[in-house]
Every structure is written in structure tokens, then in C-alpha cells.
């Protein structure tokens, strides 16, 4: 029943439009706290989508993908402190991320499996150390302050709410386009079998670098918005490996390689985080660890796959009951 509803195209379009309209209107009806919570959910959803382009579609796990978040935030912050307007500063952050992808990505992407995963952690650590010690440019351990928007808080909250929302929608659309495109076939072929992909004429180096660049651009823009939103950043904060790991976990929870999985994962995770274990700050890490273990043991394929499976099962049972 429910599944048929999902499969009907018209209903799907109406449903999606309703959700979008709802999310567009909601910040005018709720308090600043909820607007901020939703903004952070959008941010994590965006970051999870970006990392899932690598994990779910390409089959590479950039454990240190947060490096682009930090690069985006820092480049934007430094540029803005020199009087460059936010949109331009944001683009500069994205460009720096692209450069890192090209110069470091090409050799690093030759590595497979664990080596790639941990090389990205190394990359993050190295760039973080540079940011921490280039005090003249970045403020070092003191952190970096962004110019504050001259407006009342509610308006500022909504401003960032819509920015993050737009970025998330863009990330979703990008992933849909990629899946359906020729480029998407190249990416999926590489995940399936890199040698076979090469034998079919797919330039794996270019393809892998390209998808990582897309992931990096999205991540770095999220970092730029985050920095401007928080108006203060530190290296511990934006180069924090935990951000990337949380996103990987959200992706796992929702379902890697699905359109909606990472979004669903981010939504559930952030709500849980805010509602449940913000009450137990002392055990925050431990609870995160335990949830991870539970997800791996009990929903290894992610929620989307589990839901699909239970729908199918329900359908079969329905049929059997009918016959």
C-alpha cells in the first residue's frame, strides 16, 4: 500500500513539493532553537551526501574528508577578514579544495581500501597542523573570527537556515544527476570492479578525481557557511575528524549509495543527539560508539534497504494472504 504510494510518480512529486514548501515556511513558525537545530541537520545531511558520493557510489572511504570542511571554513574566514564578500570568499574556499583534490587526490586515489582511508586522515592532520601553526594567517590556536551580520538574531538564523537548505537540495540534485548520467555509470563501474572499468575505456583516475572534487566542493561550501554562521572557528572545531566519522555513521545508518539514505541518517542521528544524549554529556562519545556498534550489528545495510525489504516482505505476505 505504502510502497505503491511511493511508486506513483504524481504522488511522489506532490509529496516532495509539500515537504519542500513545508521546510521553506517552517522557520517563520518556530523558535530560533529549532531553526538552528534544523540548520545543523541540513548541514550534516549535506556533508553525509558529499561523503556518500565517495562511499556509496565510488566505493572509497575518505575518512578525512572533513579536511575540505576546514579548508572551506578557513579560506572563507581569512578572505572575509580581508574584506572580500561572502559569496566570493566561499568560491575561493571551493577553489582551494579543488586544488588540494587535484594535487593530492591524484596520487592518493591510486591507493585502495584502508590506505586511501587513512591517507586522507593524514592529509587532514597535516593541513590542520599547518592551519594551527600559520598563526599570522589563521589566528592559530586563538581561532578565527568572522564578521558578524548586522541584523537581529532571528533574521540571521533564517538566513543561514535557507543557505544550508539550498545547499542540501543542491547536493541531493547533484547526486540524482550523477546516478543517471554517463559519468555516474563510470563511477559505479569503478566501485563494482576497477579493472573491468578500465578495460571498458573508463579513465579511472580522472573519474575518481572528478567525483572527489564534487564531494570536496559541497563539503567546502558547507564549511564556509558553517564558519560564517558560527562567526568563530578553530582548527579543533572544523578539522575535527569526528565530523567526518559522524557523517560516515549517518550514511551507514540511512543507507550508503541511496539518494535519501544519508539525509534520513542525518535527521535521525541529529535528533537523537539533541534530544537524548545532550542530557548525558559525560557519556556522549560512549553512546555514539554504542549506537555505531548497534547499527553495524542490526541494520548493516542501512535503514533504506531495511525499509525496502520489509515493504517487499509485507507485499509478499499480502499476496499470500489474498490467494
Amino acid at each position: 500500500m505504502l510502497r505503491q504510494l511511493f511508486e506513483n510518480k504524481k504522488i511522489r512529486i506532490i509529496g516532495i513539493s509539500a515537504i519542500v514548501l513545508f521546510l521553506m515556511g517552517i522557520p517563520w513558525l518556530i523558535t530560533g532553537y529549532w531553526v538552528r537545530l534544523l540548520t545543523s541537520i541540513f548541514m550534516y545531511a549535506t556533508l553525509s551526501k558529499a561523503i556518500d558520493l565517495m562511499i556509496g557510489y565510488l566505493g572509497y572511504v575518505p575518512f578525512g574528508n572533513v579536511v575540505f570542511f576546514g579548508l572551506g571554513a578557513y579560506t572563507t574566514g581569512i578572505a572575509m577578514s580581508h574584506g572580500i564578500p561572502f559569496p566570493l570568499a566561499m568560491v575561493m574556499g571551493a577553489l582551494i579544495s579543488i586544488m588540494v583534490c587535484i594535487f593530492i587526490g591524484v596520487p592518493v586515489l591510486r591507493l585502495r581500501g584502508h590506505y586511501f582511508a587513512v591517507a586522507t586522515v593524514g592529509l587532514n592532520g597535516a593541513i590542520m597542523a599547518i592551519a594551527l601553526n600559520a598563526t599570522a594567517l589563521t589566528g592559530g590556536a586563538m581561532g578565527l573570527t568572522f564578521p558578524v551580520l548586522p541584523a537581529p538574531p532571528e533574521i540571521i538564523y533564517r538566513y543561514f537556515y535557507y543557505m544550508m537548505f539550498a545547499l542540501m537540495v543542491a547536493a541531493i540534485i547533484v547526486s540524482i544527476i550523477i546516478v543517471k548520467s554517463r559519468f555516474g555509470y563510470a563511477v559505479r563501474s569503478i566501485k563494482a570492479n576497477e579493472e573491468a572499468a578500465r578495460a571498458l575505456g573508463i579513465n579511472t583516475t580522472v573519474t575518481k578525481t572528478a567525483i572527489w572534487i564534487i564531494s570536496a566542493i559541497i563539503t567546502s561550501i558547507a564549511g564556509a557557511i558553517y564558519g560564517f554562521w558560527m562567526s568563530y572557528i578553530s582548527t579543533m572545531d572544523v578539522f575535527n575528524i569526528m565530523i567526518g566519522v559522524t557523517c560516515i555513521l549517518m550514511t551507514l545508518l540511512g543507507g550508503a549509495g541511496t539518494i535519501i539514505g544519508p539525509i534520513l541518517g542525518a535527521l535521525i542521528f541529529q535528533f537523537l543527539s539533541e534530544m537524548v544524549w545532550s542530557q548525558f554529556l559525560e557519556f556522549h562519545l560512549g553512546i555514539l560508539g554504542v549506537i555505531t556498534i548497534l547499527v553495524i550489528f542490526f541494520i548493516p545495510g542501512g535503514l533504506v534497504a531495511s525499509l525496502k525489504e520489509s515493504f517487499t516482505r509485507a507485499k509478499v505476505q499480502h499476496k499470500e494472504a489474498g490467494s
Binding site: 562511499i55 572511504v61 575518512f63 581500501g113 584502508h114 582511508a117 566519522v245 560516515i248 555513521l249 551507514l252 559525560e282 557519556f283 556522549h284 562519545l285 560512549g286 553512546i287 555514539l288 560508539g289 554504542v290 555505531t292 556498534i293 553495524i296 548493516p300
Partner: peptide, 25 residues
């Protein structure tokens, strides 16, 4: 037994989180 290498990697990280929390406590 049930997942790819990367799930195992995440599992060790989850264990790290629990250990860290224990030590912090």
C-alpha cells in the same frame, strides 16, 4: 563476517569512542 573492510574500520572506531569515554570518566 558481515561487512566490508570499511565497516570493520568503523567498528574499531566505535570501540575507540567507548574506550575514550571510559577513560575520560
Amino acid at each position: 563476517r558481515r561487512g566490508t573492510f570499511f565497516v570493520t574500520l568503523i567498528m574499531t572506531f566505535a570501540i575507540e569512542l567507548v574506550l575514550e569515554n571510559f577513560m575520560l570518566y
